[in-house]
C-alpha cells in the first residue's frame, strides 16, 4: 500500500488529462527505470519485431497459407523451407507466421475486451461505492467462484466455435482481476483532494471518471494488461489442446504446438518452431510486464 501511495502523491498534483499525456516526471522516471532493466527493454524490441512480422505476413510469407505438397509430407528444415514442412507438406514458417497473427490477435483482442469491461466495471463500482459497489463486486465474486477452465469449455461447447466467441469467452473471464484492481485504485484516488475539487466545481460523474480517475489508475492497469496478454494466449493454447480452439485450415501457435507435441520425436521441428515462437513472446510479455511493474512502482493486489 505504501508504495502505491507514493505514486499517487506524485500524480495528485496534476488535474488535467492533457498535462498528464504531455509527459511528466512520473512517466519520465518510469522510462528511465525501465531502461535500466535490460531484459524488459530487449523484450520490448522482440515484441515489436514479432509484431511487425505478423502484420506484414500476407505480403512477406514465403508460401501460400493452404499450399500443400502431399508427396513431400513432413520434411526437416531446408533452404526451401526454413522451418521445414508439416505432414501435409505445408511450409511451417508460413504457418507459424499466420498462426502468430491469430495468437496475437486473440491475446490483444481478448485482453482489450477484458480491459474494457474490467476498467469500466471497477471504476463505476469504486467510484459509486455503497450498495452499488457491494452488488457489483458480489457479482465479480460469483464469477470468480466459477471454475474458469470448465466455464470456457462449456461456453465453447454450447455455442459452437468462432473466433469472436473465443475472444469474448476469454475476455469475459479475464476482466475480473482487472475490475478488482481498478476498483481498489479508484477508491483510493476518489478520496484525494483534486477529485473532491472537481466534484465541487460540478463536473459530471462520467467526466470525473474519464478525466481523473482512469488516467490515474493507469499504471496498474498497464502492468496488468501486459501480464494478461500472455495468460490469454496460454488459455487459447489450452483450448486448442482440447480441440476447441481455432478452426483449420486457420491455425494458431496453440494449435501448431498441440499438433507438434504429438509428433515431437519424429518431426521435432513441428514443435520447436511454434513452441519457440510462443515461448519467446510469452517470456517477453512477462518480462516487460514485470519491468513495467518495477518501473511504475506498482504492487498488484492479486496476481
Amino acid at each position: 500500500m505504501t508504495a502505491s501511495n507514493s505514486t499517487l502523491n506524485q500524480t495528485s498534483t496534476m488535474n488535467d488529462i492533457e498535462q498528464f499525456e504531455s509527459g511528466n516526471s512520473l512517466w519520465h522516471d518510469a522510462w528511465v527505470r525501465l531502461r535500466k532493466n535490460k531484459l524488459a527493454l530487449v523484450s520490448l524490441f522482440v515484441l515489436i519485431f514479432i509484431g511487425v512480422i505478423c502484420l506484414l505476413t500476407p505480403w512477406i510469407a514465403p508460401y501460400g497459407y493452404e499450399q500443400q505438397d502431399l508427396a513431400l509430407g513432413a520434411s526437416a528444415p531446408s533452404a526451401a523451407h526454413w522451418f521445414g514442412t508439416d505432414t501435409l507438406g505445408r511450409d511451417l514458417l508460413t504457418r507459424v507466421m499466420y498462426g502468430g497473427r491469430v495468437s496475437l490477435a486473440v491475446g490483444l483482442i481478448a485482453t482489450a475486451v477484458a480491459l474494457t469491461i474490467g476498467v469500466t466495471w471497477g471504476a463505476i463500482a469504486g467510484y459509486t461505492g455503497g450498495r452499488v459497489d457491494a452488488i457489483m463486486m458480489r457479482l465479480v465474486d460469483i464469477i470468480y467462484a466459477l471454475p474458469f477452465m470448465i466455464f470456457i469449455v462449456l461456453l465453447m461447447v454450447v455455442f459452437g466455435r468462432s473466433l469472436l466467441l473465443l475472444f469474448l469467452a476469454i475476455g469475459a473471464v479475464e476482466w475480473l482481476t482487472m475490475a478488482r484492481i481498478v476498483r481498489g485504485q479508484v477508491q483510493t484516488i476518489r478520496q484525494l483532494e483534486f477529485v473532491e475539487a472537481a466534484i465541487s466545481i460540478g463536473l459530471s460523474k462520467a467526466a470525473i471518471i474519464r478525466r481523473h480517475i482512469i488516467p490515474n489508475a493507469l499504471g496498474p492497469v498497464i502492468v496488468y494488461t501486459t501480464l494478461t496478454i500472455p495468460n490469454v494466449m496460454l488459455l487459447e493454447a489450452f483450448l486448442s489442446f482440447l480441440g476447441l480452439g481455432i478452426q483449420p485450415p486457420e491455425s494458431s501457435w496453440g494449435v501448431l504446438i498441440a499438433n507438434g507435441v504429438e509428433s515431437m520425436e519424429e518431426y521435432p521441428w513441428l514443435l520447436i518452431f511454434p513452441g519457440l515462437a510462443l515461448s519467446i513472446v510469452l517470456f517477453s510479455l512477462n518480462f516487460l510486464g514485470d519491468g513495467l511493474r518495477d518501473a511504475l512502482d506498482v504492487r498488484a493486489s492479486k496476481d
Binding site: Q68, L70, T87, L88, P248, P249, N259, E262
Partner: peptide
C-alpha cells in the same frame, strides 16, 4: 480428431 482433420484438409485441397 487429428486424423479426421488431416484427411479433411487433404480432401478440401
Amino acid at each position: 480428431n487429428e486424423s479426421h482433420r488431416k484427411l479433411a484438409v487433404a480432401v478440401q485441397q
